[in-house]
């Protein structure tokens, strides 16, 4: 780029962008700040400097057994993602390397299943879960989250696999590589980055899913989404504790998210924007 950027232009852009960015980030920042206040301080009016107490964090765990919910969130998001990958990898692999006339239709159809509003099937699913004893079970919810994210997982893997040059596979085949050798020595090393990206994005999506995780759980399998929602009818104002619980609930995903910006764009736009 030969265009000279004036310092003045850069300064204005910097100031404007930082102001907007801080305004957007403010609710999160204020939550983190409030989590280090005492309950008294929290409702005393606007203040950016907390007294720095960890009281709320210890109390959240003591009163509600916070880490059980946290553990459920980890188990459900990772478990459902691994399940989805097991089912989706073969499908995406075959669609990327032996496409037929119908491949695109199948992909579009898969995407269209995401369009079905969850409420439309709320009661049937509730009935099925109740009658099979899956209500409030981790396995049931794991399968549920797997099904919800499966279209996105297939799509995302497909866009990554499609970029692996088919000639390499043919060359390997000509050299006499068997199918399994082809998969293990040629395909896997090239596919791992795409699979990792897909995994990351889907853990984030599953972690934040807030319809089925709230409706199909009560205590045993309840993850953080259900735990936080139970704060909506508090017996009074416990903002410091609410903030501490919220901070713990979003922190791991926020950090993962910062590292997955590129994958996020690609995954959620089905490869249309890179």
């Amino acid at each position: 780029m030969a265009r000279a950027v004036t310092t003045q232009h850069k300064t204005i852009a910097t100031v404007a962008a930082w102001i907007v960015a801080l305004l957007i980030f403010f609710p999160i920042l204020y939550t983190i700040i409030t989590s280090f206040k005492s309950e008294q301080e929290a409702i005393q009016g606007f203040a950016l400097i907390p007294s720095g107490t960890f009281e709320s964090y210890t109390e959240v765990q003591a009163q509600s057994g916070y880490f059980k919910f946290f553990f459920n969130s980890v188990l459900l998001s990772v478990g459902s993602t691994v399940l989805a990958l097991l089912v989706a990898i073969p499908a995406a692999w075959s669609m990327a390397f032996s496409p037929t006339k119908r491949t695109k239709d199948i992909l579009m159809w898969m995407l269209s299943t995401k369009m079905m509003p969850a409420v439309a099937v709320l009661f049937p699913i509730y009935l099925i879960f109740r009658d099979t004893g899956l209500l409030d079970s981790r396995i049931g919810l794991m399968v549920m989250l797997m099904l919800i994210n499966l279209p996105i997982v297939v799509w995302m893997l497909y866009t990554y696999f499609r970029e692996i040059p088919g000639e390499i596979l043919e060359a390997a085949r000509m050299d006499g590589a068997s199918l399994w050798n082809e998969i293990i020595y040629v395909l896997t090393p090239m596919a791992v980055p795409g699979i990792a990206s897909t995994m990351l994005l889907n853990i984030i999506l599953a972690w934040n899913e807030a319809f089925w995780t709230i409706r199909l759980t009560t205590t045993e399998a309840a993850p953080l989404t259900a735990f936080i929602s139970s704060f909506s009818s508090p017996q009074g104002l416990f903002w410091a504790k609410l903030s501490a619980a919220s901070t713990l609930a979003i922190a791991p995903i926020l950090i993962m998210g910062w590292f997955s910006q590129k994958q996020l764009v690609r995954g959620l736009t089905f490869g249309a924007v890179k």
Binding site: V20, A21, I24, F25, P27, I28, Y30, T31, T34, I204, W207, N208, A210, I214, L224, T225, I228, S229, F231, S232, L237, W239, L242, S243, S246, A249, I250, I253, L254, M256, G257, W258, Q261, L264
Partner: peptide
Amino acid sequence: VISPFFVMPPVAALVWKNM
């Protein structure tokens, strides 16, 4: 700027509602 996207809906709603 990207951070709010990673906040789970119940947290986002409660933070806005209360604080």
